[in-house]
Design a protein around this nucleic acid. Sequence first.
DNA 1: AAATGTTACGCAAACGTTTTCGTGTTTATA
DNA 2: TATAAACACGAAAACGTTTGCGTAACATTT
Lengths: 341, 341
Amino acid sequence: MKPRITLKNIAKEFGVSISTVSKALKDSHEISEETRGKIKAFADYYNYKPNSLALQLRNQKTSVIGVIIPEIVHHFFSTVINGIEQYANEKGYNVMVCLSNESYEKEVSNFTVLTNGSVDGLIVSVARETQENQIYKHFDALIKDDFPLVLFDRIIDEIDCDKVIIDDIGGAFKATNHLVEIGAKRIALITTQDYITVGSLRKEGYLKALVSNGIGIDESLIYKIDDTKDLHEQIGKIINVKNPPDAILAVNEIYAAIALKASKAKGLSIPDDIAIIGFTSGLISEFTYPPLTSVEQHGDLMGRQAAELLINRIESKGPNDFQKVVISTGLKIRKSTLSVN
Amino acid sequence: MKPRITLKNIAKEFGVSISTVSKALKDSHEISEETRGKIKAFADYYNYKPNSLALQLRNQKTSVIGVIIPEIVHHFFSTVINGIEQYANEKGYNVMVCLSNESYEKEVSNFTVLTNGSVDGLIVSVARETQENQIYKHFDALIKDDFPLVLFDRIIDEIDCDKVIIDDIGGAFKATNHLVEIGAKRIALITTQDYITVGSLRKEGYLKALVSNGIGIDESLIYKIDDTKDLHEQIGKIINVKNPPDAILAVNEIYAAIALKASKAKGLSIPDDIAIIGFTSGLISEFTYPPLTSVEQHGDLMGRQAAELLINRIESKGPNDFQKVVISTGLKIRKSTLSVN
DNA sequence: AAATGTTACGCAAACGTTTTCGTGTTTATA
DNA sequence: TATAAACACGAAAACGTTTGCGTAACATTT
């Protein structure tokens, strides 16, 4: 790569000082019209652009936001990034994305790299392993230094910072209510392991709805999927019993789609024999047969919110109280809960 | 935010020079065991970490890779980013993601920001608008300076740099052949506007397969979708005619899924009345009913390749010839082309 | 006793920029 | 004609780091 042209180069070219060049390029009245013209023409011709590293160092500001997420090949997270990027860009920030791959170690290493001055603030969704082990040292270090930090979706209550979450309880509540309304009696919940906060929150909403409808809680209808094992097998077992549930609430799109597939394979009719709702963020629900009723998560909005909180934090002088923003969900009703009759 | 601790702080604390501190922290033998110990303990206690901006400026290296893609809420692109991130990380690089949103202007502005010293190299998939207008000034500027650049998927032939592409021709060829093999006579192609390179390459493979099978080319079976208009309407028109095609090759998953939906709505049986194949990168194809046979694109691999080419370019001294790597596709056969009979 | 070697540190340049504060020269004012 | 502005520029510090070189003070060798 050719070395980039610098102020020093230009200065040498005209036998003037670096500061003269700098001022000339900034149209300072301190520099004569003549000198200014020459320098600007030259700089323009050689496509001079100030080295942003130097500027960042001098201004003690990078205008970069770091984002650490568990994975990127996941529709929900990409919509969030999209939202972050949109808002950040409007405000003149760039986005640096790092993946933890659900690993604690990787998350910590991302923290170390990003908080060494490369970014002005951090937006994080916690890795599964971190949630599992509950080791938050890397967060504590940031908090102690008042480093701008926003957690989203997979948050940690103990950490004192701005947070953005989906209204998981409300979403599951609405969905479960809907299932009750269409006549379901034995509503199964397909969820994640307990340490995944969103999983347990959705379970909470599910339980709340059952209670408020006077339906008894049947623990045997709550299935906790292990994401590291075969999904089709685990979910198949829920459907392939003598007396399967008459409705299913799945905490994500994949679980719901697999349950749908398994139900059809067993010859059950949907929604008449079994109604299915999934939390969603992707396009699958729309294209299954029948299409899946789903709890919509508005990842874009979540990303925008997170970015807004972070940038406010970065640019604010005084200490403000930390906020916890809740993004409400929508229930998109499709054929998997809508009897044609 | 609390100001971060620097070498200068530590130096002042112990009344030594900055260089002494720097050397002590690097375990230099030039510094006495005693001084070294004190300094390291202090630095450790206050969690000193060298400011990476300063290092980047000094070393003239950021260890950051810039990635510019048209959109991120797109399964294919997220898999590519995933691949890039994986490989980059293995090599000690970080990834900065920018979105062009298919806009020429945004792409240019991303170029400007990223090439001002923030990144060591750039991986780009060209925005639709740029392909449409064929204005490549921003690329030319980079090429002239030998700035490390890799194009992927949506590439520009005229630009002299490393490139990674999907074997679009081969993929479409294989898919079309498969359709012929299962007995299709009137194979429609649902593709994009011509200026989208991948679209026209896939069309090329489609045509090649027809020719090699001695099937006449019927231009009226080639449908060019306008992404800015209603997809369901445009694709519906293809199916809802007296004599619809008996097979469809769609250049992406969404087109294929919509065609499938429209066919079912019309009461056509799949694959017996109409067989469907889509290029894919997402999960939709797996969960439609029936599941869609698809041309798999291996975005992860593509990302890894792009990152590898770029990092080699960044780290290589002498000028090497530019490479064009072709990632081959797979044909995943599912029920949409597999008659149950 | 002189020469040499070792130890333990500091100085200063370099990366590229901005900006404050001089300062020498010219021009305008009293 | 002396004095004050106005003009046009340069020096240097600052952001935080690394590193080659210089050098005192002390230790060892011949």
